[in-house]
Amino acid sequence: MNKTSLAALLSMVTIGLSAVPFAAQAQTVKIDGSSTVFPITEAVAEEFQIQKRGKVHVTVGIAGTGGGFKKFCAGATDISDASRPILAAEMQLCKDAGIKYIELPVAYDALTVAVNPKATWVDQITVAELKKMWEPAAQGSIKTWNQVNAKWPKQPLNLFGPGTDSGTFDYFTEAVNGKAKSSRGDFTASEDDNVLVQGVTQDQNALAYFGFAYYAANAGKMKALKVVNSAGQAVGPSDVAVLDGSYNPLSRPLFIYVNVDSLKKPEVKEFVDFYLSNAQSLVKEVKYVPLAPAAYQMAKEHVKNGKLGTVFGGVSKVGLKVEDLLKMEAKQ
């Protein structure tokens, strides 16, 4: 029995393996972290490996921003994808393990608040209204649209949002409710953003928030709300609005964190340089908003000069432009 089934399995595997040529022992760049940043890093890794013709291997995981930092601070990965800045607890973890890192913004994402196209009563929304919908106190009490704004109809308000482990959830709650992870709990949560997209496309009374890429891929089936910014203008999510800073507070930078010791390895250094040089076009291709060219240039200088630590000091800040971030003093 053992022999037959083993032989069968083995032969299956070998047939497959023999079909593909192998690269000999290659260096590996290990990356893990946010699933939001994943498409960008994946695109860069794909192009990088094509360019290096298999001499360098790149692996990318989707453990989530938090899970990624756990591995990163244990020294298990060279680079960590993050959809929010490193937290104080994670900074401590890295410090205890003697891991030093460089923080590099690589793209913007515009958190998009979307409703069903049939929700004709709403085109724009203020942060205060969003807060009224999503704050912990709303749990069980805010159930209809008119409770948020008297001009809206008395129809049930069905909320959809990402799961509590996601960086998107962290950022939205920080920007809207003033404190990361503080949110009402009685909404339909899913780690799979396509479930949120489906919720909005099928339910006239639904409201959801998710990354801009999910809106861009389904733009015909839903309506993105304009969000009233700090200057009092209602602005819809778009590349231009994100870049000029007018889509605030819901546009956020995405980061990669690079282990400084790994940077000493030529393949990691080359990968990071490749990342920053090609991000402009690749980020656009996977439907995120690239930074201004000058910002990538500044990030490159940081790598060159070895600017250690984070400019956030473990506290998330909302609505900052990347150019300003890059100029700020960093803490470890």
Partner: peptide, 18 residues
């Protein structure tokens, strides 16, 4: 498998067993 850290993007194969 995700918990122990399988990867989502990997563009090379393991060393062949034979």
């Amino acid at each position: 498998i995700i918990t122990i850290g399988a990867l989502a993007f990997i563009a090379f194969l393991p060393t062949p067993p034979i």
